Computed example of a mutant assay.
Amino acid sequence: MLSKIPGLAYIGLVLTPLFWAGNAVVARATVEHIPPLSMSFWRWVIALALILPFGLPGLWRHRQVIRQHLVTLLVLATFSVAAFNSLLYYAAMTTTATNIALINSTIPIFVALLAWLLLGERTRPVQALGIGLAIVGILIVIGRGDLRIIAQLQAQPGDLIMVAAVFSWGVFSVLLRKHVVPLPALTFLTAQILLGTLVILPFYLGDLLWFSGGFELSGSTALPLAFFAIFPGILAYAFWNHAVHEIGPANAAIFMYLTPVFASILAILFLGETLGLFHLFGALLILAGLLLATRVVRRSPVYQE
């Protein structure tokens, strides 16, 4: 049905990085009111409540496959739904939305690097050069243009946490490539959200009882949570998968590079963030690295932010 709508794949591919950018900006704006683990947990609870009526029949129909691959599904959910998103929201406490989006845009680099390290996939010289350029770009962004900050370990904690988040997504993508779970897309997504929410639950309860104390539910906190669940969660994932099916993963991956552009614009408009020359120089190196690295590897990581 969706494939009959002309241009929908490209419309979705423009909206998807916009939603991802919005995830970083809204997280930065609300992290002082909603603790990161609360943000991550309730985002996925809402998403689960919305998707479960559609995904539950598939979970029941493919219960045997789920049982056989339960450990694999649990590990995948831990690195993607649980770790990646929780770390991203922790990063928002001490770094800018622009930096989050710039570092997040290097996911293909981490996937290529980890595929080489963990799967032994061949890395050609051009791809290695791209990885190197992107890493230098990340260091420039993290060091605010002064690499002595990196050498002296004075980088913003949020930038380093975001690197850990992207590393987590890279591990997920490589494991997903290595251990294919034969489930339909909707069933797989529903299982991932369900298992990931269960993984977050004990950490959320511990944070609620002994650290953050939770948050006050109001319009200013409920709306961001609904946004996280619907737009960068369910809709972005649906648009992404539809586009990959229609135009292929290599063409769809190019649109990922719009995320830091949208994030910078939104952060300037709504958060009062400013762009420095180091942002532009770092972004150019990251973009050049991405184009070189993904020029050889035509696969695109699945996105589930």
Rank of each mutant, 00 (worst) to 15 (best):
M1K: 14
K4S: 15
I5R: 13
I11G: 08
L15V: 06
P17E: 07
L18P: 06
W20I: 05
G22K: 04
T30W: 02
V31T: 13
I34R: 14
F41Y: 07
R43T: 04
W44L: 00
V45C: 03
L50G: 02
I51K: 01
P53V: 11
F54P: 03
G55H: 04
L56G: 04
L56E: 03
W60A: 14
R61N: 08
H62L: 06
Q64K: 04
I66D: 06
V71W: 13
T72L: 07
T72D: 06
A77N: 00
V81G: 01
V81T: 03
N85I: 02
S86R: 05
Y89G: 10
Y90T: 10
A92C: 14
T94C: 08
T95W: 01
A97K: 11
A97L: 10
N104H: 14
I109R: 00
A112N: 00
L113P: 04
L114K: 00
G120A: 09
V126E: 14
A128P: 10
A128K: 11
L129Y: 06
I131Y: 05
I131T: 07
G132F: 09
I135C: 12
V136Q: 10
G137R: 12
I138Q: 08
G143P: 13
G145M: 11
L147V: 12
R148C: 05
R148I: 04
A155D: 12
P157D: 14
P157S: 13
G158E: 07
M162I: 11
V163C: 05
A165G: 09
A165P: 06
V166E: 08
S168L: 11
W169A: 02
V171A: 06
V174C: 00
H179L: 06
H179D: 05
V180N: 07
V181S: 06
P182Y: 09
L183A: 07
L183E: 08
L183G: 09
L183Q: 04
T187M: 04
F188I: 03
L195S: 00
T197V: 00
F203A: 15
F203N: 14
Y204A: 11
D207C: 07
L208W: 07
G214F: 07
F215S: 09
S218A: 02
P224T: 09
P224N: 09
A226P: 00
F227C: 06
I234C: 09
F239W: 09
W240S: 08
H242P: 09
V244K: 03
H245V: 14
H245S: 15
I247Y: 02
A253S: 05
Y257W: 02
Y257S: 08
S264Y: 02
S264H: 05
L266I: 15
A267T: 15
A267L: 13
I268A: 14
F270A: 14
T274H: 07
L275S: 12
L277Q: 15
F278P: 10
G282C: 12
A283V: 08
L284Y: 10
L285K: 13
L291G: 05
L292W: 03
L292V: 04
V296T: 15
R298S: 14
S300H: 01
P301G: 00
V302K: 05
Q304V: 11
E305C: 05
